[in-house]
Design a protein around this nucleic acid. Structure first.
Length: 163
DNA sequence: GCCAACGTTGGC
DNA sequence: GCCAACGTTGGC
């Protein structure tokens, strides 16, 4: 049972373009729903593996520079994405029903804003991060698992001032 | 804005 | 089930 054998905490990287949502937006909101993920692999992570209390690196893609801008926590595990049911909405998907939802959301809570972006270039040049999915060319997955070790290294880099 | 890399779609 | 066409992502 999950109560007796709780899942160990997992770590994630969540991508978002600054035009859509930023770590500052999350700091302002405190908490937000992470809807609109329309990729099956990312969906599976959100639906099957993310648990409340998991920690996440907040990654700004298509940014200047792109990189990790802060930290977040999973505040609610996967639940059916209600936007998939909103007819006319850009996230609407007629294939998703309440009985058989196709897409899933999670809720994210704000944890911290890095004083400076940990850029993609820094990630690429940091020992211990060689296996990170996000530094691989052509990696487009918007929800990625990271190891505790990778999370800790990036969180430490991010906590340094004046980088 | 370019374009390579990738995921999805649809004809067959 | 193959694979070309298409749309999107995202670094640069």
């Amino acid at each position: 049972m999950a109560i007796l054998f709780p899942m160990p905490k997992r770590y994630w990287l969540m991508k978002c373009e600054p035009a859509a949502y930023t770590i500052d937006d999350l700091a302002r909101d405190g908490r937000t729903s992470w809807e609109g993920v329309r990729n099956f692999q990312a969906r599976n992570f959100m639906r099957d593996d993310m648990q409340e209390g998991d920690e996440a690196l907040f990654y700004a893609s298509n940014a200047d520079p792109s990189g990790v801008t802060g930290l977040a926590r999973i505040a609610r595990a996967g639940y059916p994405d209600p936007f998939a049911w909103k007819k006319g909405h850009k996230y609407y998907d007629e294939g998703s029903t309440a009985a058989k939802p196709v897409w899933y959301s999670v809720d994210l809570a704000y944890v911290a804003t890095f004083p400076a972006v940990v850029s993609l270039e820094t990630l690429k040049n940091t020992k211990g991060l060689e296996q990170m999915m996000v530094i691989r060319k052509g990696s487009r997955l918007s929800v990625q698992p990271v190891t505790k070790s990778e999370f800790d290294i990036v969180a430490r880099l991010g906590s340094k001032r004046g980088r």
